[in-house]
């Protein structure tokens, strides 16, 4: 299992295009993926509805979890994506 923390830096949070891009990225992996926000709410980053409903705002710290064949690759790329979201 892969676990790592990341911080949402862009002003709109996991909204609109960043949310869509995250989902598109996650769908490439076969592993089960999960993102947990600071209050412990879990959401499925392969589901756009789940990502949007989480309403993650700028400055939130989240935990990324990946379990499966490509867990390390998946986890690494997702953390990289989230941390790299434009200001």
């Amino acid at each position: 299992m892969f676990t790592a923390n990341a911080t949402i830096k862009n002003p709109t949070g996991l909204h609109a295009r960043p949310a869509a891009q995250l989902v598109a990225l996650c769908k490439k992996f076969s592993s089960d993926l999960q993102i947990t926000d600071a209050s412990g709410n879990k959401f499925d980053p392969k589901s756009i509805i789940s990502v949007l409903s989480a309403g993650i705002k700028q400055g939130s710290d989240v935990q990324v979890t990946a379990t499966g064949a490509d867990e390390d690759d998946a986890g690494g790329q997702i953390v990289g994506f989230i941390n790299g979201l434009a200001e």
């Binding site: 589901s47 509805i49 789940s50």
Partner: peptide, 13 residues
């Protein structure tokens, strides 16, 4: 319509 396709593609839902 791109956004619609993404929602349509939401397996979890």
């Amino acid at each position: 319509f791109g956004a619609y396709r993404m929602i349509l593609d939401d397996d979890a839902f």
